[in-house]
Design a binder for these strands. Structure first.
Lengths: 217, 217
DNA sequence: CCATCACTATATCGCTTCGATACTGCGGTG
DNA sequence: CACCGCAGTATCGAAGCGATATAGTGATGG
């Protein structure tokens, strides 16, 4: 799961660990603070597989891509005024390999490679890399899962041995799942409608929001 | 986290592993299928701590509590017609100890013992065991967390480098968090209103539902 | 009549993830 | 210049997960 996230980010630019974490937090906006205890082992794993390769520190061109927006820009500013060349510390910058790109595609498309909510959210975030039919299949699959889950939760709602609080929880859960389904329906409708290449189709634009798919609370 | 769930269920009746799992699934309605790879180690852990004790198979009175609603009732039926005494197999029935009750209270009340969404959901499900002020504190604490999270996600929404899909995800996430907050507000209001012992206060009843706190999708 | 299926039930293995913690290098501030 | 705090990498132990093994039992059906 982390592998998918990492490869997806590296797809766009070379990054070092810390920055990957930051982007996971606020570019993807989801995936509440992945811990380093997960991140670094994941990077090591991917490197061992040959899916990413580490650009040795010092070799990395200091200009641009590799640095975090915040730290990078500040460092650049400082460099300009204090005329000290910002010799980057022990940063290990990672770059995706062709093999990594293959792996990314596989993780993104193969349903058997994880089907939990987190993975779905991640896949959807990267859905621009998917062919329209695969994308649609992804949405439909998820929808089916949610429909099943909804009926389970609804049956729990029907129980009469629940006190106020337990009941509040299950009802809230059910409502959440229902809204997720509605949201997916919106997305599916968008997929189905003939795709204009023009950025904004007239009816599009506000069907794209609703409730929580559950990428963390 | 599992510990809290297990102790909470054992609070009401003695149970064996399989049945704990079932109740987690459909009594609590949440906590999508806890795997046995988590459950049995957790039970072993609790037993080692002296928080639960295993009633040896055969010693357990076959009448009632220990069996699952389904299997139990069916087994009873069958026993009646086939007059074979259903000598229960290798079932290990667990019972909570006084020390376990202490641990339960601690896990339920101490915020430092886990503050992830799953744990919150669990705590709320067991909120009838909490004193009103502690209960309220629990809700307020969670609300504060969600408010912070919302502002984070909203700032992600403001980014302009997101494609349609990534944007859809973050917006959906934001909407979900907002609804969670609204739901909590409802619950808090209920807590605040002078508590009648009578089951239904006039204005109560439909404020208790909204969106997903995120006990799984 | 027995094979097979589906379900209850316990248990373990290897892997991923998490939370805590430790360490270093550097720039800014008192 | 001493110290604080942040950027950054790294590791450890515990917790949870998914797959898998094992075994007893009632029901289904050729």
């Amino acid at each position: 799961m982390l592998d998918l996230a990492i490869l997806g980010l590296l797809q766009e630019s070379d990054l070092h660990g810390y920055e990957i974490r930051r982007r996971l937090r606020d570019s993807l906006g989801l995936m509440a603070n992945i811990s380093f205890g997960s991140l670094y082992p994941a990077l090591a794993r991917l490197e061992a597989q040959g899916a990413v390769s580490a650009i040795e520190p010092g070799m990395a061109p200091v200009t641009g891509v590799a640095m975090g927006s915040l730290s990078g820009e500040l460092a650049a500013l400082r460099a300009r005024r204090s005329k000290v060349v910002v010799a980057k510390k022990a940063r290990k910058v990672y770059r995706i390999t062709p093999l990594g790109r293959e792996l990314f595609t596989r993780l993104l498309e193969d349903p058997s490679a994880g089907d939990d909510p987190r993975t779905f959210t991640l896949r959807l975030s990267f859905a621009r890399h998917l062919a329209p039919d695969v994308r649609r299949a992804l949405l439909e699959r998820r929808r089916a899962q949610l429909v099943e889950r909804l009926s389970e939760v609804r049956s729990a709602t029907a129980r009469n041995d629940l006190d106020v609080y337990a009941r509040a929880v299950v009802e809230h859960t059910a409502a959440g799942v229902a809204l997720d389904i509605a949201w997916l329906d919106g997305l599916i409708a968008h997929e189905g409608a003939p795709q204009h290449t023009s950025p904004q189709s007239p009816t599009a634009g506000d069907t794209m929001s609703s409730a929580s798919t559950s990428p963390q609370g």
